[in-house]
């Protein structure tokens, strides 16, 4: 019978992994929880003192925190539709029959942005978007746009790189959905109508929904995680115009040295993430 194993056997198999992950994943979280209930400043380590929920109260009423949160969701709200739009376009082009070799090459080139080290994307951004000797301004007919030093432009630049890096991911997810459409169904539909839009809406869309949901949840989680690329590109600036939530927590904790406050912010971020993960599981792993 399936699943017949003694408790000891199961523990022997799964124990080491659980133990390992508990040490590096749970113990630090408990410590963060403890820190978040204290006044804990790296420059005033003698004055550590229990202050209850004061840090949480400060975070929840802190305008800067909510601004960073709003900025993060604004980035998601602008980048994700672009990623889905372009991604769907790319998936449809790749799904069209014919041109096998060219399509394989395109598919391989889609891997490049996804695999690029996030930090390197930011460094590359600095080089390509430089006002004076950047190639982007050159390609824009010698425009003299200050990308990195202007709040709006810097934000646009972050959107550009996020879209560049993650559109291929969305495209490949949606392509996987398109290939799930049974061949006969699609061919029958093509005999009925020539409009690609009708086919997309009525034949292909149902097969794309699971992929779209996965993209929505994972992109939300990844945007809340976003740090490396923005850190190397703008460090959150100019001002705080590109300071997203993870960058802000890092600044408060390591450049402002207020570990207590930063931990409270991190715990709140963690709660949001757990809710997201719950939704993800509910949608995709019913059978477990």
């Amino acid at each position: 019978m399936r699943g017949q194993a003694s408790r000891k056997t199961i523990l022997a198999f799964i124990g080491p992994a659980v133990f390992g992950l508990a040490i590096v994943g749970i113990a630090p979280l408990l410590y963060a929880l403890w820190t978040s209930l204290h006044f804990f400043n790296l420059t005033k380590l003698r004055q550590i003192e229990f202050i209850g929920l004061e840090n949480y109260a400060n975070v929840l009423t802190d305008e800067v925190f909510w601004q960073a949160m709003g900025r993060t969701f604004f980035l998601l709200g602008t980048a994700l539709p672009l990623q889905i739009g372009f991604g769907l376009g790319i998936a449809l082009v790749l799904h069209k029959p014919g041109l096998t070799i060219l399509k394989t090459l395109t598919r391989l080139s889609l891997v490049l942005p996804m695999a690029t080290t996030y930090a390197v994307v930011g460094l590359l951004g600095q080089v390509m978007f430089n006002q004076k000797f950047g190639v982007v301004n050159q390609l824009l007919n010698g425009a003299d746009i200050n990308w990195i030093g202007d709040p709006t432009n810097a934000f646009a630049m972050i959107i550009f790189w996020d879209v560049w890096q993650w559109t291929p991911f969305v495209a490949l997810v949606l392509l996987a959905g398109l290939t799930m459409v049974p061949g006969e169904v699609e061919e029958a539909a093509r005999l009925e109508t020539k409009s690609w839009w009708t086919i997309l809406r009525h034949v292909q869309l149902p097969f794309l929904i699971p992929g779209l949901v996965a993209v929505l949840i994972l992109r939300t989680a990844d945007t809340l995680k976003l740090f490396d690329m923005v850190f190397t590109l703008t460090r959150g600036g100019p001002g705080s115009s590109t300071e997203f939530i993870s960058l802000m927590i890092q600044r408060v904790g390591f450049r402002g040295f207020d570990q207590g406050l930063a931990s409270a912010q991190a715990v709140i971020l963690l709660i949001i993430t757990i809710v997201l993960a719950q939704i993800y599981i509910r949608v995709f792993y019913k059978e477990v």
Partner: peptide, 29 residues
């Protein structure tokens, strides 16, 4: 291969780890 109690929670915990921002762990670590 095995059935056991808490399997679902374990699964959930593993996925959550994929989604947690590293800054959450970086502070206490």
């Amino acid at each position: 291969r095995f059935e056991f109690r808490g399997k679902k929670d374990l699964w959930f915990w593993f996925i959550t780890n994929r989604m947690v921002s590293p800054i959450v762990l970086a502070l206490p670590f």
